[in-house]
Computed example of a mutant assay.
Amino acid sequence: MSSKIKILIIDDSRSVQKMMEFVFSQSSDIEVVGAAHDAYEAVEILREVKPNVILLDVRMPRMDGLTFLKKLMNQHPIPTIVFSSLITKNPEIGVRALEYGAVAVMDKPVIDFQNLKSTMLQEKELIDMVRTFGNENLPKRSELLVDRPKKLVPIAVGANEKIDTVICIGASAGGTQAMKEVLLQLPVNFPPILVVQHMPVEFTGQYAQYLNDTCAIHVKEAENNEMVTAGTVYIAPGDQHLTMVKAGNGYRIKLLGGPKVSGHIPSVDVLFDSAANQLGEKAIGLIMTGMGKDGAEGLLKMKINGAYTLAQNEASCVVFGMPKEAIALGAADRVCSLKDIPLVLHDLAKKKHRK
């Protein structure tokens, strides 16, 4: 019995199919079990074999990739990497792909078919993703849908009142939809929230706008030197670390360039380290679904410095990597399902505000 990770390629270009088959053939633990020209051919292959991972193009005949992705995730969820040349040109496509359940989105490379070479700088990243996602069983979409509680009673935060609590959240694969489910339930005047969500820089502004259009609470892409205010969620830009510094009675956003930390820019560890140093017990830390271990050590530092810390549970994660690492370090005071996180955050913030 083979233990190889099985991958299905769905792309209307036979040349791209061949190039991807060549890329994956270099890895002895990955096997391409099918290459489909469109969604209908893919369905026929799926009747015969269940791949561990799907590599999916967007622009295809008969049915576009996003429509297929939405149907797939609602019925038979399989980790799917959306792989398209349209993503950089139209970031909204990437955001929609993540909303529909893609575990990752990537630009399609420029390929020299004559010499069988690719300009795909993310080739190693793609193979690493396939290995990680190939060992994950996605929860059904129904399991990710939150049974929303009764409307949360707003926390009474005055416009000029000192900020006593700041919530810091880190997430990666699967986090775009999970974050939406959390933010949808928070009242408009909730304490400020700083978010690091691993995604390309082209997407973060569009993602923030999408959340702002969807949620009651105000959501924006973080800007350097702006004051942190209640009722606002700040999304880290995709090419800068998100930190904060004390400024009078409040805090100011400080965006930092520089190298990747824990394999990422923005890094969850950088945000959590900043919260530990600047906020101490005034912080609440939450680490959510994602691959890797970014944020685990930072969450532990937050806990040591007096913050209350949370981790999303395995059953409700698309990828349990980041929360698992944090829990293993003893960094989480509490482990919660996705459906419980909003109420837990609300209760914690309310208790801190009363002190």
Rank of each mutant, 00 (worst) to 15 (best):
V182K: 00
S262Y: 10
P51R: 08
R148Q: 08
D164I: 11
E143H: 09
G158C: 06
R334W: 12
Q209D: 11
T80H: 03
A283N: 04
R354D: 13
A173D: 08
L300E: 11
D333F: 08
I93N: 07
E48G: 07
V166E: 02
V335E: 14
G175D: 00
K324D: 15
S316Q: 03
S274D: 05
G280E: 04
E123F: 09
I5V: 12
Y308M: 11
M20N: 04
I169N: 00
A311I: 05
V219D: 03
A178G: 01
P191I: 04
N305P: 06
K246P: 11
F320R: 02
P323T: 04
V153G: 07
P192E: 12
Q75W: 09
M60F: 02
G174K: 03
Q114T: 15
G321S: 02
V245R: 15
I5A: 13
A328R: 14
D64I: 03
M106V: 01
I193V: 13
A102L: 01
E99H: 05
H37C: 08
G257C: 12
D107M: 02
N277D: 15
I87G: 10
S85M: 13
S28L: 10
N137E: 15
N137H: 13
L299G: 09
Q206I: 12
P323Q: 03
V157G: 07
L329K: 12
L69W: 02
V103W: 09
E202R: 10
T289E: 01
D333T: 02
E226K: 11
N305F: 04
A296N: 12
E223V: 13
N90D: 14
L183A: 06
K352N: 13
K18V: 07
L121R: 15
I235V: 10
E161S: 11
L186P: 00
R47I: 02
I78K: 07
A102T: 04
G170A: 11
A36N: 04
L138Y: 10
G205S: 05
F113L: 01
K282L: 12
I87N: 07
L152P: 07
G258E: 08
V130E: 00
T119G: 15
L345P: 04
F24Y: 09
D333A: 09
K50I: 13
K117D: 12
E223G: 14
I341A: 00
K71Y: 15
K70N: 11
V335P: 09
T243M: 05
D239Y: 04
S262A: 09
G205V: 01
H218W: 11
C168H: 00
E143I: 03
G263A: 06
A283P: 03
L8E: 07
E125N: 07
E41W: 00
L300V: 08
V219G: 09
I163K: 05
A35H: 02
K6H: 10
K324T: 07
K117R: 14
K350C: 13
L145M: 08
V105P: 07
V49E: 12
D213T: 08
P187R: 00
I127P: 06
F272A: 00
L242V: 05
S267T: 09
L72C: 04
A276E: 05
L184C: 13
K70Y: 11
L126W: 02
V195H: 04
E31N: 07
A104G: 05
L56F: 02
T204E: 06
K303A: 11
Q197P: 06
S316P: 08
V166T: 05
A326Q: 10
V130H: 00
I287R: 08
K339T: 09
